[in-house]
Design a protein around this nucleic acid. Sequence first.
DNA 1: CGCGCAAGAGAGCGT
DNA 2: CTCTTGCGCG
Length: 860
Amino acid sequence: MSDFPDDMPFFGDPAAPRAQAGGTGAPEGIAARALKARGGAPNYLQGLNPEQRLAVETTEGPVLVLAGAGTGKTRVLTARIAHILSQGLAYPSQILAVTFTNRAAREMKERIGVLVGGAVEGMPWLGTFHSIGVKILRRHAELAGLRSDFTILDTDDVIRLIKQLIQVEGLDDKRWPARTFANMIDGWKNKGLAPSEIPEGDARAFADGRGRKLYQAYQDRLKTLNACDFGDLLCHPIRILRANPDILREYNARFKYILVDEYQDTNTAQYMWLRLLAQRPETARSPSSPAGPSPRTRGEGSSVNVDAPLSPSLRGEGKGEGQSSTINICCVGDDDQSIYGWRGAEVDNILRFDKDFPGAAVIRLERNYRSTAHILGAASHLIAHNEGRLGKTLFTDAANADDDKVHVHAAWDSEEEARAVGETIEQAQRKGHLLNNMAILVRASFQMREFEDRFVTLGLNYRVIGGPRFYERLEIRDAMAYFRVVAQPADDLAFERIVNTPKRGLGEAAIRQVHDYARARDIPMLAAATDLVATEELKPKPRSALKQVVDNFNRWHSLLDSKPHTELAEMILDESGYTAIWQNDRTAEAPGRLENLKELIRSMEEYESLRGFLEHVALVMDAEKNEDLDAVNIMTLHSAKGLEFETVFLPGWEEGLFPHQRSLDEGGRSGLEEERRLAYVGLTRAKKNLHIWFVSNRRIHGMWQSTIPSRFLEELPEAHVEVSESGNSYGGYGQSRFDRADPFQNNYSTPGWQRAQANRSEATRSNWGSRSGANVERIGYGETDSGFGAGRGSVKGRMIDGELVAKSVSDTPSAFKPGDRVFHTKFGNGNVASIDGNKLTIDFDRAGQKRVLDNFVQRV
DNA sequence: CGCGCAAGAGAGCGT
DNA sequence: CTCTTGCGCG
């Protein structure tokens, strides 16, 4: 079986196209089409600035393109591929182009198609690290102890599996949460570490020193399940390539050109993977030991020890016949946009590029085509507070006196923040702006809800990108579990999920029996079930129920290759009784769930087979968004990278949320710098209008807490920022018509408010101004931002980790007693009903019972 | 065994 | 405040 139509020519290509401009070996059609597209002059070069053009045309040798935000990075990448193709330097199938997100891969494919005119036939190696990893792994699955139809587990499956292992070990799963261990494994795999290779300290840190054993047990279980996790999609190929020089050589000969997007986000495993693939064919040789050398650990040395050292670069040597003698790798990235350190990304990879690839050409793209001078100025000034940058200076010609400065708004609480943003959006809409051109970028996804609620009330269209995902819905996961077992009968996790859905009288006892039988013999549960129903071991009722399940799966499985997969899928859902569950369900959400199941079947039509579909879901996990609908985009800052919008809203700029407390706790100074890069990413998404918000009160874990403004606000340059009245126009700060329903709100002369102000200015040492009259007047810069260079010293002093951080929970016991009469600025007067640490339950006279933090109320 | 309610824990970002 | 887990009953 071949899932990959391009497999055929893979190792049996005709002679490689000659590496000569306009070489006669060029694949027919593409070059001709590209040239034809605009009267002989390649259209893909048109409109490129000199640096961009250099980045496109420097095809030979290692190239690092440092591309600042909005400098046309994607354009360069796509033009470069178009150039390589149309110059006949390589076949499409000889180009390895790696991105981080499926979105980026899709976009590149489309844009290359436009550039070379028509569909890009066969760019089989353009994709994400993981999709290409899967492809390699399926080809050589047996070398990793898997069959080529292996399943890719998602995070949920992984956690359930680990939980089982922890219980088997007899460990307390409360004390040793599966989620924590899943994260640890992920971290190891990000570094390419097998169980035998993890640091002793790490191994000891979990489960009383049983970390290594558990990791090994996890890998063993994956093998039995014929499954792998996300990390394995990279780690398995690395091991396979290391242990099999012949295979490595084939790939090395295969890939004439390598392109990597978002290079600053590569982790150690991805780096090792690239280094292996980016070797010259003739230098690939066998590893010194079967296991391969130990991978680099953080901070050690300056290069990764891959088996075959790279031979000295022969850059500029001119193109030889047949194959180039240089490593034609082009990495594009921006150290200022490195925001995945927590996922194991090593900015070091990009900082070290010219040492890894001697003689590398480094090209800087600094001309920004996206944002106004104010936005760019604000972003540049903010990011200048980071140390250890490669240092780029973005500039733009687009200085326009009419451009708005960056707006900073204050709101009383997150509800008002959502209201005011909604107001601003509606105003813009009335002026004719499309909602599609606006985005709300949040730090944490829980912030989204408030906006969603508000927009529903307003009847304002919105879409959540990367939010609660289609494939994570209950009914979809159930249906997928059925399909997974049919496609890959060893998938126990899927089997366990649906063996008793719908209810078949197979309770915990029966399932345990199957489970134990399977574990004892190291076979999949479906196989165990098949055995068990032939014996007398089960009670009659579960036995016949289980027999029916087994028979069903066998029958469905036998139809896998003969029946069209969408029909088969419908058949499975009907015959299993799964559809009936929701048909008989009279609750409000049942019709929606049935609709989702139909949508699921519909979306399968685009794929060739059930397995192809399952793989897509495992790797992509997001449903295509409806571009036809005009809607505001809501997403996290992380998923906004690479996008741009006319108008951008950045809510929640408060200490503890942004920068996020956990980044500071776990990452210290570098954690703070990563948060700052995230802020930079957020700012640079905006083309014309940028609105930043912070609130004084935010609800966390259902409890109101007072907050202080983010330090990042103070790092914005005064010249480009304007502190605005709140987004509405209803009588000043915070008092919109929507507030009337709540008579307790917004009394700035109250003790609580005064106290909040006192806390605030103490904590930030800034002059945010008492807002007793109306609005924040101005942002103070006195000691911080006297300029890029000069500012840094004082900034450094101010930036001691954690110094300014809002504490989420107070250490000091509450000074309140039950029965105390208190005042709360939002809810009014009330009596303390009970106390739990610093959390008070208060019966308010008019607002009812609420739980609040004690530092949020005032004794009266 | 299955359902329902109560208590307890818990929300950072994602291929 | 919201979701998951655990326990007790029918």
